[in-house]
């Protein structure tokens, strides 16, 4: 399959801090999850791939277009939808007006066709009932949907979503996952998240980023398999474990190299992720909890 996105050796530094270090990726149709602890470089990588910030070194193409040139960057953006980590809005706009504004910025010039497209994405995002309401009056979850609708308008081939489920309640998160799953049908979606459940439920592929480098690139099943035979239960925290935490049952779940005779447990994606990161250091508590 021809990759939608092909990145090679992407590096970016902020002062003495290495945000990305020689990241290479090839993304094809479907939802790819980008997992990593805070400061792993996820947002930076997404911003680079969304052409919001250029890399220091390395190159990438989207559908064969090189964003290193002005013309190439415009071509890339014509095929791109981007939902940033903290999307901002013009609060006095309605969802229809805002998405229509983004559609104009995306060069959809035919008014009637554009309005049809805006109605389509608002409908797809479940905003049909509030499209005339001011954004300032919408809940956080609804605003996230407006941002997703703005990313989807123009039917982009490559969708970049930066932690879209952060701050949503479980029901909203579930609905948002449905939206993303639908969006991933037939297009390439790169989804940054702290939530291993998001990856388990949505993604055909997962990339783990830490310290600006790719630590794992494979399927969720392969990441889970990394923890096979390396997760065990104990009455006390096992000092030999790479990571261990108390569960709701009062026992401790440990990952690492189990002692002889340990009570082995079925591994999860989260276990594989923690082992890939070599423990809990720097891992967001949301993941480890």
């Amino acid at each position: 399959m021809t990759p939608t996105v092909s990145a090679s050796g992407l590096s970016l530094r902020y002062g003495g801090t290495r945000a990305l270090d020689d990241v290479s990726l090839r993304l094809s149709a479907g939802v790819t999850g980008l997992l990593g602890p805070n400061g792993a470089g996820k947002t930076t990588l997404l911003r680079v791939l969304a052409t919001a910030v250029p890399a220091d070194r390395g190159a990438f193409t989207v559908l064969g277009h090189d964003p290193g040139t002005s013309r190439g960057r415009q071509e890339v953006r014509r095929h791109l939808g981007y939902l940033p980590q903290t999307p901002g809005f013009h609060p006095d706009f309605t969802p229809f007006e805002f998405v229509d504004y983004v559609a104009i910025l995306k060069e959809l010039t035919d008014r009637a066709a554009r309005h049809r497209e805006v109605r389509r994405v608002l409908d797809e995002a479940g905003l049909d009932g509030v499209r005339g309401k001011r954004i300032r009056k919408l809940s956080g979850g609804m605003r996230q949907r407006v941002a997703l609708a703005a990313a989807l308008v123009g039917d982009p081939a490559f969708l970049v979503l930066d932690e879209p489920t952060v701050g949503l309640d479980p029901e909203q998160r579930m609905r948002f996952r449905e939206l993303i799953a639908r969006a991933g049908e037939g297009r390439t979606v790169l989804l940054s998240t702290h939530q291993t459940e998001d990856v388990a439920m949505l993604c055909h592929r997962v990339v783990v980023l830490a310290g600006g480098t790719v630590r794992f690139d494979g399927t969720p099943a392969e990441l889970t398999a990394r923890a096979a035979g390396r997760v065990w239960s104990s009455a006390e925290r096992d000092p030999g474990a790479k990571a261990g935490w108390r569960t709701g049952l009062g026992t401790f779940r440990n990952v690492g190299d189990p002692p002889v005779g340990a009570d082995l447990l079925e591994p999860t994606l989260e276990d594989g992720y923690l082992l890939t990161l070599d423990g809990l250091d720097g891992v967001d508590t949301e993941v480890a909890a």
Partner: peptide, 16 residues
């Protein structure tokens, strides 16, 4: 020059 910009995400850059 390097070091003058940082990503807009809430995640800070790594200390690697």
């Amino acid at each position: 020059p390097r070091g003058l910009r940082s990503p807009s995400g809430t995640s800070g850059p790594s200390r690697a």
